[in-house]
């Protein structure tokens, strides 16, 4: 028996709270931000909105002329392009170890690697700020055993971003690890047996069975991790405030400072939309690749 609801009213009633909230507090602000990004909305417009004027694309043009914005873009690119592959690699290795038949105490290891994921990022950034401390920090102390001289991790423009990346990878790899473990468990054992019969060694098994079978999982993980890393904010906010010499200024941190410190909200909105554009491009590439896979 085909079942049909005739009662639209009930459906609209069920939808109305969520849809009202989404339209008023999500879609409307998105549109408003777009409009704002074409105005010179600043601290004076906060009190009297009529003070804001349309300025066309000049916020965007100013941004692209602003070396600081390029710096923030470059820093974010560095963070993403080094952090994402590193994070995925470590997640995959950890997942393979967790999936190994040789290993016992798996729940312990899984829990351990997962703990940083659920802890508060701000608290973690605070802890690591002291770990990176040049004179008394734990890291430099440990490195001294292998003969490495103290590094001023967060005070040196050369190392600060790398320090943030290491922390972000430590914080996040457990999440993708869980997804990889599930992906590994979905690979039929018979494929490995067949590979072994053909005389494949460990590396060849990995290269010709594990990696291709994980392709879809890896694709998904890459996109979500990329998008997450593009939005990094709390790490530099807590640990470096974007310094030294703006070497850890991220796009979102710049957006925050322009918008909520200097109250140049039109300018800040333009930064937000450029971030949106970047994320949109990443997502579109993903959809494109997915389509190719389906065909």
């Amino acid at each position: 028996m085909k079942f049909k609801w005739q009662n639209y009213n009930a459906a609209y009633l069920f939808l109305s709270p969520a849809m009202t909230a989404i339209f008023i507090f999500f879609f409307l602000p998105v549109l408003a931000a777009l409009v704002m990004s074409f105005t010179d909305f600043d601290i004076y417009s906060l009190g009297d909105i009529s003070r804001a004027r349309f300025v066309g694309f000049s916020n965007y043009i100013d941004l692209f002329k602003n070396p600081l914005f390029w710096k923030a873009l470059g820093n974010t690119g560095y963070f993403v392009l080094v952090g994402v592959p590193l994070s995925i690699l470590i997640s995959m290795l950890a997942a393979m170890a967790l999936n190994s038949k040789m290993l016992r105490f798996k729940p312990f290891f899984r829990l351990t690697f997962f703990l940083p994921v659920v802890t508060t990022l701000v608290a973690v950034a605070v802890i690591w700020r002291y770990i990176y401390q040049a004179r008394f920090g734990l890291l430099n102390y440990l490195l001294s055993f292998v003969g490495i001289n103290p590094v001023d991790w967060l005070g040196n423009p050369r190392w600060a971003m790398l320090a943030l990346i290491i922390m972000a990878v430590w914080k996040g790899f457990g999440y993708n690890m869980i997804i990889f473990v599930a992906g590994l468990q979905n690979i039929p054992e018979t494929l490995y047996e067949a590979a072994r019969l053909d005389g494949a060694n460990g590396w060849q098994e990995f290269r010709n069975v594990t990696l291709p079978m994980l392709a879809q999982t890896t694709g998904f993980i890459t996109i979500t991790t990329l998008i997450g890393y593009c939005q990094f904010f709390a790490e530099p906010y807590v640990m470096t405030d974007g310094g030294p010499l703006n070497s850890t200024l991220s796009i979102v941190l710049m957006m925050y400072k322009e918008g909520f410190k200097f109250w140049r909200m039109g300018y800040s909105a333009a930064i937000a939309f450029i971030l949106f554009g970047i994320i949109l491009i990443i997502t579109l590439i993903q959809l494109r690749i997915q389509k190719h896979h389906e065909i």
Partner: peptide, 8 residues
């Protein structure tokens, strides 16, 4: 991204 909505 949520950051887009934050200013308005």
């Amino acid at each position: 991204p949520a950051q887009v909505t934050m200013l308005p």
